[in-house]
Write a protein that binds this DNA or RNA. Structure first.
Lengths: 227, 227
DNA sequence: TCAAAAGTGTTAGCATTACACCCATGC
DNA sequence: GCATGGGTGTAATGCTAACACTTTTGA
């Protein structure tokens, strides 16, 4: 398809098109969200999701990846990236009409080291359930991202994306518990997960005290999220 | 919040912001989608979802309602309207970078009479599962809308929105069957719906031949879709 | 031998599915 | 009385939730 010059009807509104990325990871058994401290007005020195304007010719998901990389120097690829809602309320940004396509990202374990980049003053992981005060409508964005993450957890096997290639069942259970924000029964959890047949055993892990744990990785027939 | 003049960073992309509306209704036991025949290039004389550009200062859902009204003269209020995905792929519209926030609407029974408006050559209901060829990426948009509708059906009681205030259980079952595109067992369906306790009996309907049917309406404690 | 973490089965309740006949009405 | 559409019950199965003790290791 050849792209012709932009000739829009007169009533077409010109808006700023942005993406924001709600990036989750697990650390110390807690669900964490990646925030940057803004270096510019508006909301300078306030925490916000990494995000920014889409560049000409850039796909939405590419823009999301770029913002994640340049604002936070997360060098690991997200294991999951999906658009989940578009925030376009008039007045959500004092600079004018800015519409933000919000994305949900899952980063694997080991992504916990991040450094700030771009115009930000810092990039840090924070508790996803009790974040600091957030700029713009980013608390709303976070809430909706959490809801979507919880749905995806049941629906696809999104929990696996938080962990390294091989992991133990107790580790996986911690991911479920952190996202659902409740305790699960160990026996029922194991039964359910193992009966799905998506986990293959692969050796043992013996670290620290206590009985060594069976290691698993995802089976070949890994099904990923639909919709 | 005071809105200042638009001062965007230089890298901000100016894009056309549009909404499209996938409006569903039931007719003759079939799930129908509302299409308009485009009167202008590109894709003149091709069927498409009603939609168009968002106006300055206009909220996204307001724009969706306006397009629905002006392009199709549907005067009934949609019973349900939600944003479900944003389509922004480069090249999806030959006129330039146009991002469309797609909305899902449910129109009640009786909305079947529509007349074209705006710049369109026609507005008609078509089979949602076998539509005619569609303009732009509108087949993709329709597919995703159908997926979302199916999820909402189980999740909320969205089926009620397709029907008039009072309805019979066989009528309700037809809605479920049309959306899920499969047959359901009458007895199991009744058991499930009635046990939810969201339906209140209200009189009988005696039309045509056959035994009169019990009429129901939604109970006071009507819960609506979340997320 | 103790602390720490991993692992293991059974039962009861509930929801889902499959399945076939009688009832009320208009013509 | 028959065609049309509305209404009803039960049994089997599978899933979910609740519940406590044993095993393996390092210190």
């Amino acid at each position: 398809m050849t792209t012709q010059p932009l000739v829009l009807p007169p009533q077409a509104t010109q808006v700023g098109l942005a993406v924001d990325v709600v990036a989750f990871a697990m650390d110390a058994g807690k669900l964490q969200v990646l925030l940057v401290k803004r270096g510019e007005l508006p909301h300078a020195r306030v925490w916000a999701m990494p995000g920014g304007f889409v560049q000409p010719g850039e796909e939405l998901h590419e823009a999301a990846l770029r913002e994640l990389r340049t604002e936070t120097s997360v060098h690991l690829e997200p294991r999951h990236l999906e658009q989940f809602y578009t925030f376009g309320q008039v007045g959500r940004d004092p600079r004018g009409r800015i519409v933000s396509v919000a994305h949900l990202a899952v980063l694997p374990h080991g992504a916990a080291r991040v450094v700030p980049g771009g115009h930000t003053l810092g990039a840090e992981w924070h508790s996803a359930h009790q974040p600091p005060p957030l700029a713009f409508d980013h608390q709303q964005i976070l809430n909706r991202a959490l809801g979507r993450l919880q749905v995806r957890l049941e629906y696809a096997n999104l929990a696996l994306e938080f962990l390294p290639d091989s992991f133990t069942l107790p580790e996986l259970q911690v991911v479920y518990e952190a996202i659902q924000n409740r305790k699960l029964d160990k026996r029922n959890f194991r039964k359910r997960l193992l009966s799905q047949g998506v986990l293959t055993p692969c050796g043992e892990r013996r670290i620290g005290v206590g009985r060594p744990a069976q290691l698993y990785r995802r089976a070949k027939n890994a099904r990923v999220a639909a919709l």
